[in-house]
Simulated scan of single mutants.
Amino acid sequence: MQSRQPLLTVQGVTLQYKTPHHLITATYRVSFDVMQGDRFILLGPSGCGKSTLQKAVGGYMTPTEGEMRLKGRKITQPGPDRMMVFQEFDQLLPWKTVKQNVAFALHASKRMSRREAEEKAMEYVSKVGLASFADSHPHMLSGGMKQRVAIARGMAMEPDILLMDEPFAALDALTRRKMQDELLKLWDETKFTVLFVTHSIAEAIKIGNRILLLSPHPGRVKAELNSTTDAQQAIELEQHIHQMLFSHEPEEVEHA
């Protein structure tokens, strides 16, 4: 039986950036594949290059070494086939309503008329449970609601891959758990592909079906693991990941 082709291929990618005094190596020869419909997690401690890696997938950085391909095409710049959702609440246009925020990118990209964009926007605003707030402005929304609008805006573009950089990190614990549940419910409905950055082991196990574990700076692939929905196995997996992250002994790359 022929294997499926990866949607996203990251091959031997080293990423570097300059500060006023130093050349920083964020990741070193990182490789992984993301398949269609994956909830693929980049997990690691602060400073391991996971957000930098995601920015490069978004087309905002060029690898020093290696390459990234989406649907076989080399990534060289940003594009509507990759939409990003950040952790900041203030990623919405404050003078536009919820519906207008979601419709804006659709109309501005000349994909559809204003009316078509508004209809598509309402479809996704409803999907994230905010239909009754469609005509509200961002200042009237809670942090969790603003994040739902940002997710709706990203999904409305129907990108090949949704890039989420710690989107729930700034939320309180209860809202964060609710948002995780809502994201999984959305995924059940649409099976969109997501590349999700987090430094929370529990969140990685809950959200992801596959987890790429990165070592501390510079980020190298420490392990690639399958997640689990079994409660006992999830506890064991969390302990295993914690041990790998915080053990100082050198170890081989692990695949599961």
Score class of each variant (00 low, 15 high):
residue 3 S to I: 04
residue 6 P to L: 09
residue 7 L to E: 01
residue 7 L to P: 01
residue 8 L to H: 02
residue 8 L to Y: 05
residue 10 V to R: 05
residue 12 G to K: 15
residue 12 G to V: 01
residue 13 V to A: 04
residue 13 V to S: 07
residue 15 L to S: 03
residue 16 Q to S: 14
residue 17 Y to P: 05
residue 19 T to A: 06
residue 20 P to E: 15
residue 29 R to W: 00
residue 32 F to K: 14
residue 35 M to D: 08
residue 36 Q to T: 05
residue 38 D to W: 08
residue 42 L to T: 05
residue 44 G to T: 06
residue 48 C to K: 00
residue 53 L to T: 07
residue 56 A to Q: 08
residue 57 V to L: 04
residue 60 Y to G: 01
residue 62 T to S: 15
residue 63 P to L: 12
residue 66 G to A: 09
residue 70 L to N: 10
residue 72 G to H: 08
residue 82 R to C: 08
residue 84 M to Y: 03
residue 88 E to F: 10
residue 89 F to P: 00
residue 97 T to N: 09
residue 105 A to F: 03
residue 110 K to Y: 13
residue 124 Y to N: 04
residue 131 A to H: 14
residue 132 S to G: 00
residue 135 D to K: 11
residue 142 S to M: 11
residue 144 G to A: 05
residue 146 K to N: 03
residue 149 V to C: 05
residue 150 A to T: 07
residue 161 I to V: 14
residue 164 M to P: 03
residue 173 A to V: 11
residue 173 A to Y: 12
residue 174 L to D: 03
residue 174 L to T: 05
residue 180 Q to T: 07
residue 183 L to H: 02
residue 183 L to M: 11
residue 193 T to H: 11
residue 195 L to Q: 08
residue 199 H to V: 00
residue 204 A to F: 03
residue 205 I to P: 01
residue 235 I to R: 15
residue 240 H to T: 09
residue 242 H to F: 13
residue 243 Q to I: 00
residue 246 F to N: 15
residue 251 E to I: 00
residue 254 E to Y: 11
residue 254 E to Q: 13
residue 255 H to N: 13
